[in-house]
């Protein structure tokens, strides 16, 4: 009797759950999964996106790994990851830590820092392009105060620094978001832990390294892994500010995919690059799962 009472509702609940999940699943399958799978299919074809695809086996993949543009773009993605898992994370964590100590002005300051994140990247990118114009942007100001070296730097025109210039703008846009994430995590740390440690004679550094960091570690790992995934997919600021140029100095995988698909009309080749890009992002996700299983609750 007891068994019968519990078994029946459990079955019903399971069906109800599926009923709620199915619409979202169908939506996801039609608009995300199926097109993604079709990219894998088309990556084995020579196709311009409108005509009849011609099967070429692994031809696109062979071409890709011998393509200097692909290597350059992938290298730039790795540099991008290097920048984004250090600067905004460090800046966001440190600022969040100090802001968490504020009482009255906390909301105002964190709103100010967060604001760049809500500006559309196309708008912000265009504005920053004007700032980096060699004739009437920051350079004029640098020259006016006598910093001629900086004043004659081609922020978006020099192939050696253009990637870092765009990364700077994206960091400006992004770090406020990281700061808010850390702030949320910091506010979850039990204050009694700090009180106990202080009673034991812990100093500020010890409080930070022995209590704060371990307590926010799940958030920290989540942020770092997410940044790596996002960095493989980054597109907007680079496309708006440089289009991947000059030459292909600031190309990343996404800009290369876009250019092959919509400028060169090599949809098959673009699909092959997309597949590799997805594999990199999925591998990162898998690493996150491994880390999670090893004890860090992400």
């Amino acid at each position: 009797m007891q068994k019968g009472l519990t078994a029946q509702p459990r079955k019903r609940i399971r069906w109800a759950v599926y009923m709620f999940v199915i619409p979202a699943f169908l939506f996801h399958f039609i608009f995300i999964t199926a097109p993604s799978l079709s990219s894998i299919y088309f990556s084995f074809f020579d196709w311009n996106g409108i005509g009849v695809p011609a099967y070429i086996g692994a031809g696109n993949y062979r071409e890709m790994f011998a393509d200097s543009e692909f290597i350059k773009a992938l290298t730039n993605n790795l540099k991008w990851i290097g920048i984004f898992i250090t600067i905004p994370v460090f800046l966001g964590l440190l600022t969040a830590y100090w802001i968490s100590k504020l009482k009255k002005t906390q909301m105002m300051i964190r709103t100010i820092y967060f604001m760049p994140y809500i500006i559309a990247s196309a708008t912000a990118g265009r504005i920053w392009c004007s700032y980096f114009n060699p004739y009437f942007g920051f350079n004029s100001a640098f020259k006016a105060i006598g910093w001629t070296g900086l004043g004659s730097t081609l922020w978006l025109g020099n192939k050696n620094i253009v990637l870092y210039t765009v990364a700077f703008v994206d960091v400006w846009h992004f770090w406020g978001f990281i700061m808010v994430m850390f702030l949320g995590a910091l506010q979850q740390v039990d204050p009694t832990l700090y009180e106990s440690a202080m009673v034991e004679g812990a100093n500020r550094r010890q409080l930070f390294t022995k209590i704060t960091i371990p307590c926010i570690m799940p958030t920290f790992v989540f942020i770092v892994i997410s940044i790596i995934m996002w960095s493989f997919l980054t597109f907007d600021y680079i496309w708006v500010m440089t289009g991947g140029g000059p030459g292909n100095a600031s190309d990343v995988l996404s800009t290369l995919i876009y250019r092959n698909a919509y400028s060169r009309y090599r949809t098959g080749y673009a699909s092959a690059i997309s597949v590799i890009q997805s594999i990199l992002a999925i591998t990162t996700y898998a690493i996150m799962q491994v880390v999670k299983k090893r004890g860090v609750d992400v």
Binding site: R126, C129, F132, N133, P134, Y135, L154, W155, L156, G157, N158, V162, G245, P246
Partner: peptide
């Protein structure tokens, strides 16, 4: 020259 790369 290279300025052209930095001007829209």
């Amino acid at each position: 020259n290279q300025d052209t790369f930095a001007v829209t």
